[in-house]
Simulated scan of single mutants.
Amino acid sequence: MIIKKVFNNNVVLAKNSSKHEIVVMGCGIAFKKKVGDEIDENLVQKTFILKQKEASEKFKLLLEDVPVEHVSLCYDIIEYAKNILNVKLNDYIYVTLTDHISNALKVFEEGLNCPNVLIWEIKKFYPKEFAVGLKALDFIESEVGKRLPENEAGNIALHLINAQINSSYDNVEDMLNITEMIMDILNIVKYTYNIELDDKSLSYERFITHLRFFFKRLNRKEKIESEEDDFLLKQVKVKYKKAYNCMLKIEKYLEKELNDEEKLYLTLHIQRITQR
Rank of each mutant, 00 (worst) to 15 (best):
I22F: 02
I250W: 09
K124E: 14
I273Y: 07
D170Q: 12
D65K: 05
L112W: 09
Y169T: 06
H269L: 10
M175L: 13
D138P: 05
Y253G: 07
D174L: 10
A136T: 10
Q271K: 13
W120F: 13
E257F: 03
T267K: 02
K190L: 11
E251S: 05
A157Y: 01
L43E: 05
E222A: 09
E79F: 03
V35F: 03
K5A: 04
I185D: 08
D184Q: 15
E110G: 13
F59A: 05
A163K: 00
I39M: 04
Y94D: 00
N9R: 12
P149T: 01
K128T: 04
E129N: 01
K221T: 08
R220T: 07
N16K: 06
R220V: 05
C114V: 15
F214W: 10
R212I: 07
T274L: 07
K33W: 00
N194L: 10
I250V: 11
E57K: 08
M25I: 08
L62E: 02
K237Q: 07
H269I: 04
I122K: 02
K33T: 00
F139E: 00
Q45I: 05
D170P: 06
V132G: 03
V238E: 15
G154R: 01
K19M: 15
L137H: 04
Q164Y: 02
I185P: 09
I250Q: 02
S17M: 14
F59E: 00
I2V: 15
D65H: 04
K46H: 04
R212F: 04
Y204D: 02
N171P: 10
E79T: 07
Q164M: 05
C74P: 05
H20N: 15
I208E: 14
N151C: 06
S167P: 04
A136Q: 08
R206H: 12
V23Q: 00
K53H: 12
K241G: 14
R206C: 14
